[in-house]
Each structure stands twice: as structure tokens, then as C-alpha cells.
Design a protein around this nucleic acid. Sequence first.
DNA 1: GAGTACACGTGATCC
DNA 2: TGGATCACGTGTACT
Lengths: 214, 214
Amino acid sequence: MVPVRSDEAEVAMDGECSAPAATARSGPSRSHSEAERKRRQRINAHLATLRTLLPAASRMDKAALLGEVVRHVRELRGEADAAAAGAAVAVPGEGDEVGVEDGHSWRGGERTTTRRVRAWVCCADRPGLMSELGRAVRSVSARAVRAEIATVGGRTRSVLELDVGEQQAAADGEGASSRPALQAALRAVLLSREELLASECYKRQRFSGHLTRV
Amino acid sequence: MVPVRSDEAEVAMDGECSAPAATARSGPSRSHSEAERKRRQRINAHLATLRTLLPAASRMDKAALLGEVVRHVRELRGEADAAAAGAAVAVPGEGDEVGVEDGHSWRGGERTTTRRVRAWVCCADRPGLMSELGRAVRSVSARAVRAEIATVGGRTRSVLELDVGEQQAAADGEGASSRPALQAALRAVLLSREELLASECYKRQRFSGHLTRV
DNA sequence: GAGTACACGTGATCC
DNA sequence: TGGATCACGTGTACT
């Protein structure tokens, strides 16, 4: 199956020695083999480059590699877009809440293994909240790819972009996933001392400006 | 064993030359054409998908498309790394500061047009800061691709990932750029009312936890 | 042998 | 006419 990448950059000395079988048949202009070979090796060079760029794409057949590339481009592009969207709604709201949402399964179907999960927590700001969130994330063995935190008027909203493991993403189809566990962990963080320091100092004006187009 | 490529000695047996013995009719198992065709159309499907994904990649030949894909993957991958690094240092510090830093030119050379600029502002939190930052960014006609804001203990740190225009990125080589203008604009935001509301309420404990690994 | 995967040469087609 | 790009079928190698 896997071609183990043995042949590459073989320009080959094209000698005149052997009669090319076609004899006087000069029809297929004898250098379009070469032109085509050159073209192929340009394409394959780029393919090889992509192989080095993608983390786990070595030892994949050509089509799968391209599939992985598509996935990555969508994912990274999605991150950028999601970041913009996330920044737009990152303003902390009045009520406490936690949420977990599967990575957007790309409408064009084709790959639905979404390792990315977006989670958010909105609550009163307090010392130690960061560490608690970090612990919660680690408790479900996820990795924080990005964290966006907005704290204003004593209310804070954290939007976490998480990367659950490969096996976790593959284990469940579409629904389920480790969402409940994650949500529970985050809710625990929120409830741990919800009322404790709703101190007077944190009761401040909140400003109207959205974060859109910052 | 040895892959013995480029042995063009036997291109001979092709076409109608020899009368095909009766059995030869399905020599190359007739479904192999079909299998290969299927493979090709898998690859090309992914290629087409990439074409739709990339902004200006339509009407490009296959090799050039892949080149563009390589470029984009490098670019986006760099963004992701920068995002992680940014999150790690996003904790607001004691002193006010502004900074601007060119997008990292990817070590693997090949493309050095860096439209991406990273800017950060660290100062006391205050209402309206967001809007002022937004105005500053727009004043140098840049676009905020992502914004990460951490506010703790009344101190806030905003890290902005900016996209200066194409022409601006191309206009200057490596240094210069529109950095001074951007830096000046941000500094103006910082100085506008630096002392105004260092109100008693914002003098709170700061917690030690870094954002790393959140 | 069945299956898959690759490089190759070639005919078609469009500047 | 020639250069460039594509899809196709086929030979070959590895599992």
C-alpha cells in the first residue's frame, strides 16, 4: 500500500541508444514524455512539501494526504473565522452560563472527525479562575488551542478552543463525545464559589460597545 | 526488490503490433482502468475542494494550485503558533506598554510577504478602551484578524493580530512597514487618560497564575 | 490472485 | 506549429 517514498528526483539520462520502437513514428513528439514527466515531478514536489508540513501526514497515500490538507486548511481557516466571531460575542453577559459546542462540521461533508470543541464560561471574575479552568480542561484530557478572555465590570467571559484527542474525536459519531464531561467540569468551576465574592467592588458600569470590529 | 525505475528498454509491446493471442483480451484486468479512474477522481475531487477553499486559486493549473496551498498552510500554521504564544504571555503586567511586532517570516523562506502584524497594549482597564483600540487600528487601515483580551485586577492586556493591506505589506521590505504609525496610534490610546481613573476600586490583588496551558 | 498505489507514455485540447 | 495541461489506460511493485 504505502509507497515508502523510494523514488524521487530521477531525471534519468535519456539516451539515444535503443531504437524507440516507434521507429519513424515521430508522431508523439518524443519530448512530451519529458515535459509530462517534469510536470508530474513539480506536482509531486509540492505534494512532498505538504507531507513535511502536515504533522501526521507522512505515510499516507496521495489522495488521503490531500484530504488531510483540505481538513487542515478548513480547520485553520475556521479558527480564524471563529476567532473573529468569538471576539464579537466575547462580551460577558449578565447571567452565569457555561456552554460546549462541537467543532463546526463542515457542510461539505467529507470529514466529520472534529477534534475541535468550543467551550465558554461566563461568570463573575475572581482570582484563581484561570487555574480552575485549566484544571477543568485537563480533567477531560483536552488541550487548549486558544483562549480568549474578556473581563469587564467584574464579569468575565472565557472562550476556549479545545483540542480533544484524536481517539476521543474518532470514538463518537457526531453527538455524545466528551462534551458532558467537559460541561460538567466547567459547571463545577462555575458553581464552586458562585456567591462567594459578589463583592460590592465588582458592581460597576458595563459599557455598551461590542467587540465587533475591534 | 530494487525499484528499477527509468528502465525504458521495454516500451515496445504496445498497440496492435502483435496479434493478441486469444487469452490476452483481459490481460490488464479490465477493472484496473476503472480503479485507476476512481483514484484519479478522488485526488481531483480534493484538488477541486482546495480550489474552492483558496481565495484566488481558481483558474490555476494543478501545480500552481498546490504551491498556493503550501503557502497557505505555512501561513495559517504560523498564525496558530503565534496564537498559542500570544495566549501564553497575555497576562497583564504592572507597567503600561504598547508593542508592535512584524509577523514572523517563516524560516523556510519561499514567501516573506508578511501581512500579519502583532500588536499589544497593556494598561489600566477602562470603559471605552475597546472602541479606542478599534479606532486606532482603523486609523492605519488595518484589519483585526483576532483579538485576545485578558483583564485581571483592573489591568488589561490586549493582543491584536492585525492584517495590514496587501499593498502595505508589499511596499516595505522586512522593516519599516506601517509599524510607527500603528505604534503611535496605540500609544495615543494609552496616554489619552492614563491617570484618569486609577480608581480605588481597581486596586485589587493580582493572581499569580499564568495563562499558560489554560 | 485480488487489491491498491504509483509513474509512465500518449491522445486530446486550448492558447 | 509548438508549448502546456489534462485524463486515460497500462506496466509494475508492494501487501
